[in-house]
Nucleic acid binder design. Structure first.
Length: 1099
RNA sequence: GGGCUUGUAGCUCAGGUGGUUAGAGCGCUACACUGAUAAUGUAGAGGUCCGUGGUUCGAGUCCACGCAGGCCCA
């Protein structure tokens, strides 16, 4: 049995083969089944929607999910991963509308709801095959055979069950929110519709800065500005910014010329008062003067104004609760207006929110049916209670052509306020305002009925439990998510659409009776009653579809015998996905045990854009119904942008095709690149060059290392079947790399465990490239190819084998295909692991007894010394093949000497030097430099630091000696004596006269660059060996083939070099003989620096 | 407009608790190696650490205010 050897590995092909291996051998299934009975690690899959094709960012998101599921499996947990599909919602509906060429209004008219929903059902899974294909090709292990689907009856029944639970807890109620509304079309507009291009247009409106008279104070007014004067009669509060500065200004009303004290933001004074009037005296003012004098008479903070009461501005209708107070508004600015914001809870979303928070009521009227409503009806007209303005449209645009009055309602209100000394300023103002895309008329912000989940009732619990969740990154949890919870509003569940889960609430005609249905069985029972009451002809069958229109046809009977109809709303699709922990198992109707074992989730991961989406709905439902978190650890990953940092979009053509990327570069390099390049929670600028680099640098190096191993292990028949070599029988470098390897295991385990995949990948990568390949293999190459298969060689094979196999296991969560191949290739020969897949093995366990920190330090020293010597050779243009006699190392301390001595051989062979000499103070050749220890001295002496540093830098050699011998030196700084010890300074050896010196930190190396005759000869011999090896290779000789070397007589130096090193040359080149011949007729001409040799080689 | 986030070499990223030569890889330049070879090694050049103020003996690091990009929400 041989280790597989490759000629140019195709990584995409590896993935294909491994994928087949997994499928044929059911490895994924086994990775779950083989952990049966073990502790479970629960992962929830956030369901994607299959009505569009997947993008490259899905590869990123799913790689993150996959990594931790695989890791936990290796750690022995059973990790069930049920896939899922999000199938309801607006995007699906819009897509269908577009394809059918219809609008929402046409549904139920041009096409039946039944047909329409059928179309949605067909559309929503359109790209399921592409998704499944991507899932497999990228190596995302998730159960595709039995996914949850949100439109399935079982799934929907659980939703109903959960809604009923909320209903029974009193957490489901009907209320209103302020939504964009088009009176002309008689319909609410979704935010999607409002985001259509062209909806926002610049319009000129009459704006009013109104005077709100403070209660109990003469002539004192709060000024508030509005671009919608028609909302002023609905005013119930004024909002200020708590940290904004306000002033009271004494002046005169520009319309009535009455004396007035007005309050507004300090920053806005300049906008309301003419600077030219600044110097005018109030007492010089005459009514009608153009310039109106003003004077600031008091100043307040916004929070000082909070609570101030004022008189109702336009008292047509009484408020339904406390009103006419100053309240805090977090969104108030001084960018425009007066810094005081007019609040009408019925006509602004912010208004409604801050009013509710402050316990302020609204201005409401009763319609004919006794329902409360705003002072504007659904056609956009003032209601009858509005006195002289009753029946007027609030916008002139709403009148039929030619019927609009000359003066709009806004203008009339402006006039009325001026006359009543209630307007401080009335002007036209151009601003951007949304328009209905269908009717072209302005949108109203209007209260519309909706069903809500009372999340605010559980706010404290939601906030508290959120703090127990491990968020990656933490800032998303405390910041974006935490702030969102702090400013929570009730969850608006209602959607007036067709394709979604219907709200299971039936209400009687007079709205006095309600029923919320929680199960299909319950529905049947209720229908039976209805049949008995004669409202329904027959009961529903088992094949009932819970979608519209079927449920709409169901009429129930109330306890008092009234007909009950379903509330026509659908529920927010986010409820669908937030309910997946329960609904995916059709809990509580089935699978109770599975649910219990898999709730809550240990881990979920999704894009950061889901913070207020899925992350919230999962959390909200779990906390409200079960008082628990839904997930314990969560990674909120960032976006995948194009290489220039722009959002990818199909429209712009900068979207990266995931299938193409996977096919060209393979899933492993793609995944490794995505994970190692940046933390998943940072945005990733996806650059295909980066994938190529990862492939070349990491996978290329790893594969080369494996190939190197395989080449020689095959020659020697190494199969690791006769036990492990003792640590004591291994070389220093063997023990070093194994120590590093075990340190690596620890760190990687820790990184995965802390949900830091980037750290894990980088650790593995650095070990593979720097420690294993660039140091261990390079230094030990000869051990692999020289001589017979002895104990030392075996140790080398075992060491390298262990490193490679461990890398395969550690890296398998990130690069599941390639690492599987590596594992298989290694294990096929040795059979040391019984598992048939790397994904069925156990995660490596670090052996502390192998970790030797001192050894790791020693090797660091060897590397640093070598690097310095290389740099010196470079400086003097002496190539490594030319041996040199010695280097000098100043001894920093005893440990240093001991550590360097232990790796002396390594250094000598690495840099081709004959000897290391240590020098210390007694040698007298060292020139010392001293540097202050800033961090220590700075803490103690603070301000004097500069003076101290200046003095230390001027120490003479004898000062340093004195300090060293006494461990004490007193210096005088600005009259104060400061005693220094050795700890206060850093002593380095900066220079050795007559030597070539390089240093890094405290380490200094001096190189003897004199090349003696003998060294020169050895250099020539080494050069020759090198050239002969080339010739051998050119001749196509095998490593073990023997040769004869003939060389034509050359200069005395060269001849002497050959004679002196004959044995060495023959040994290295597998030569039986080396003869110097007077004349060679047919040899090859070799150039070695200034020497030219004629050489002939015979096999 | 608000919340969160990012800004360090041409590119991608590291840089506990403030401490005096700001690092790595890629790319570039030069050299070396040539039995890991469609590999490999070494060195060099390359930085107003986004800006402006502040705190401090000392700021890439702490504070404030900005600027630019991103996401979410208004």
């Amino acid at each position: 049995m041989k280790y597989k050897e490759y000629k140019g590995l195709n990584y995409a092909e590896v993935a294909d083969n491994i994928l087949k291996y997994w499928q044929d051998n059911k490895i994924f299934e086994k990775s779950v089944d083989s952990r049966e009975g073990n502790e479970t690690f629960t992962f929830y899959e956030g369901p994607p929607s299959a009505n569009g094709t997947p993008g490259i960012h899905h590869v990123m998101a799913r790689a993150v999910k996959d990594i931790f599921c695989r890791y936990k499996t290796l750690k022995g947990f059973q990790v069930k991963r049920k896939g899922g599909w999000d199938t309801h919602g607006l995007p699906v509906e819009l897509q269908v509308e577009k394809e059918l060429g219809i609008t929402k209004e046409d549904i139920g008219k041009k096409i039946s709801v039944e047909e329409y929903n059928q179309k949605c059902r067909e559309t929503v899974m359109r790209f399921k095959n592409e998704w499944d294909d991507l899932t497999r090709k990228m190596g995302y292990w998730v159960d595709l055979d039995d996914p949850y689907v949100t439109f399935n009856k079982d799934y929907m029944e659980t939703l109903w069950y959960l809604l009923k639970q909320l209903y029974d807890k009193g957490l489901l109620y009907k209320g209103y929110t302020i939504q964009p509304f088009s009176p002309a079309a008689g319909t609410g507009l979704s935010s999607h519709e409002l985001n259509q291009p062209g909806t926002y247009r610049d319009v000129k409106d009459t704006t009013v800065t109104a005077q709100f008279k403070i209660k109990g104070e003469e002539n004192t007014y709060l000024l508030a500005w509005t671009t919608t004067p028609w909302t002023l009669p609905a005013n119930t509060a004024l909002a200020v910014g708590e940290n904004i500065n306000y002033v009271k200004v004494k002046t005169f009303n520009p319309y009535t010329f009455d004396e007035a004290y007005v309050i507004l933001a300090k920053d806005r004074v300049a906008a309301y008062f003419n600077n030219k009037a600044a110097d005018l005296k109030l007492e010089d003012y005459n009514a009608g003067d153009k310039l109106i004098p003003y004077e600031i008479v008091a100043e307040y903070k916004g929070k000082d104004l909070v609570g101030q009461e004022y008189e109702q501005l336009l008292p047509y209708v009484e408020p339904d609760g406390p009103a006419f107070k100053v309240i805090p508004g977090d969104y108030v600015t001084t960018a425009d207006g007066t810094g005081i914001v007019h609040i009408s809870p019925t006509f602004g979303a912010d208004d409604q929110r801050v009013a509710k928070q402050a316990g302020i009521g609204a201005i409401l009227v009763k319609d004919e049916e006794g329902n409360l409503g705003p002072i504007v009806d659904r056609q956009g007209r003032y209601v009858k209670e509005m006195g002289e303005f009753a029946g007027m449209y609030v916008k002139n645009e709403y009148y039929a052509d030619g019927e609009a009055p000359e003066k709009s309602l806004d203008v009339l209100i402006g006039i009325k306020l001026k006359e009543e000394n209630k307007a401080f300023n009335v002007v036209k103002y151009e601003h951007s305002y949304p328009h209905c895309w269908r009717t072209d008329k302005p949108v109203l912000y209007y209260p519309l009925d909706s069903w809500f989940i009372k999340t605010t009732a559980m706010k404290d619990k939601l906030v508290e439990l959120n703090k127990t969740i491990n968020w990656k990154p933490a800032s998303t949890g405390s910041g974006r998510f935490g702030n969102w919870l702090e400013n929570l509003v009730d969850w608006n569940l209602s959607r007036s659409r067709f394709w979604g889960t219907p709200l299971p609430i039936w209400v009687s005609d007079d709205r006095s009776e309600e029923k919320c249905i929680g199960t299909i069985e319950e529905l049947k029972a209720e229908v039976e009653k209805s049949v008995a009451a004669g409202f329904m002809t027959e009961n529903i069958g088992d094949d009932l579809d819970l979608h519209r229109p079927y449920v709409d046809d169901i009429i129930l009977v109330s306890d008092s015998g009234q007909k009950m109809f379903r509330e026509p709303d659908l529920i927010d699709v986010w409820f669908d996905s937030g309910a997946m922990p329960y609904a995916q198992w059709h809990y509580p109707f089935e699978n109770k045990e599975i649910f219990d074992a898999n709730y809550p989730a240990d881990f979920i991961a999704e894009g950061v854009d889901q913070t207020r989406g899925w992350f919230f709905t999962l959390h909200a439902i779990a906390v409200m119904l079960y008082g628990k978190v839904a997930f314990k650890n969560v990674i909120a990953n960032g976006l995948v942008l194009d290489k220039n940092g722009n959002k990818m979009s199909k429209r712009l053509g900068n979207a990266v095709d995931p299938f193409k990327t996977l096919a060209e570069h393979g899933p492993d390099a793609t995944r490794w690149y995505m994970i190692s390049n940046a933390n998943p929670w940072d945005n990733l600028k996806f650059n295909i060059d980066g994938v190529v680099e990862v492939q070349r640098r990491f996978f290329g190096t790893l594969q080369n290392t494996y190939s190197f191993f395989a080449l020689y292990a095959n020659l020697d028949g190494f199969d690791f079947k006769d036990g492990e070599v003792n640590a004591s029988d291994r070389t220093e470098s063997d023990r070093w790399v194994l120590s590093k390897l075990n340190s690596l295991i620890k760190k990687v385990d820790e990184a995965y465990n802390e949900y830091e995949p980037t750290r894990a990948a980088r650790l593995i990568q650095d070990f593979t490239i720097d420690d294993l390949s660039n140091w261990y293999v390079r230094l030990n190459r000869k051990r692999f190819w020289r001589g017979e298969f002895n104990a030392d060689k075996k140790a080398a094979y075992q060491t390298l084998y262990t490193c490679l196999l461990t890398i395969a296991k550690l890296g398998s969560p990130v690069a599941p295909f390639y690492m599987e191949q590596l594992y298989q290739d290694l294990n096929a020969v040795t059979g040391l692991d019984v598992a048939e897949s790397v994904h069925l093995t156990d995660f490596p366990v670090a052996d502390d007894s192998i970790i030797d920190i001192d050894l790791e330090q020693r090797m660091d020293l060897a590397q640093n010394v070598s690097s310095l010597v290389h740099s010196l050779r470079k400086k003097h243009k002496i190539k490594v093949r030319q041996p040199l006699s010695k280097i000098l190392l100043p001894v920093i301390n005893d440990t240093f000497k001991r550590q360097v001595s232990a790796v002396e051989e390594l250094i000598l062979s690495e840099v081709n030097i004959k000897a290391i000499e240590f020098v210390d103070d007694e040698s007298g050749v060292l020139v010392k430099r001293v540097k202050p220890n800033f961090s220590k001295l700075g803490k103690e002496h603070g301000k004097k630091m500069k003076a101290i540093a200046a003095q230390i830098n001027q120490f003479k050699p004898e000062d340093i000696v004195a300090l060293e011998s006494d461990n004490n030196k007193v210096i005088d700084v600005e009259g104060e004596e400061i005693a220094l010890t050795l700890e206060d300074v850093e002593i380095t050896y900066q220079d050795i006269p007559g030597w070539s010196v390089a240093s890094e930190g405290r380490l200094t190396v001096a190189l003897d660059i004199t090349i003696s005759d003998e060294l020169k000869k050895e250099g020539i011999a080494r050069d020759l060996v090198n050239r002969v090896q080339n010739l051998r290779k050119d001749m196509g000789l095998e490593v073990q083939d023997k040769i004869k070397i003939n060389i034509e007589k050359n200069t005395d130096l060269v001849n002497a070099a050959l004679e002196a090193n004959r044995e060495y040359i023959c040994n290295e080149t597998q030569a039986l003989s080396l003869d110097i011949i007077e004349s060679l007729s047919d040899g090859s001409e070799l150039e070695m620096d200034e020497h030219k040799l004629k050489v002939k080689i015979e096999a």
